[in-house]
Amino acid sequence: MSSALEIGLLAFVVVSALATALLRDVLGSIIAFSAYSLGISIIWVFLRAPDVGLTEAAVGAGVMTVLFLLTIAKTVRPAGEKTIERVNVRALGVTIAFVAVLSTTLFALPPVGAGDSAVVTDDVTRYYLENAYTETEVHNAVTAVLAAYRGFDTLGEAVVVYSAGIGILLVLHKEVFE
């Protein structure tokens, strides 16, 4: 991450995240949040993870924004002319301490694109990269892992989405229509 474009993107993401947290108007907050998602998804593409970027753009910037907008449609705008929410100092202190604790793990991460990181040198990764094309006949190694090597995991995820989704649909449907 060194070029001007990447630094600009990072700054954009940080600013939109701050705007999401600080804006008093919920509508503005949601718009800032969708801008944040869009920036993050472009960063994923820069990090050579287009699958994750596509997901973030579709879910984070697209569907979540619409669902949030529908949710706040029931609320009213808070009174007053202030644009920025007042910051709770104690909550801010706790948050900064929490982030500082989490940040200590940053130093354990290998630099982006490092050839000797555990992910690259791991035997499982090697096996996937060497055999995915011939064994599964697909050209996207991510899909090969998701749907072939770890197909059973993916089935589990699909069933989780199924049960969570049907549960929410049932409960909300009852609440709304009965």
Partner: peptide
């Protein structure tokens, strides 16, 4: 999704 980025979820 099998040959480029993307897939069933996206």
């Amino acid at each position: 999704g099998a040959d480029s980025s993307g897939g069933g979820f996206q």
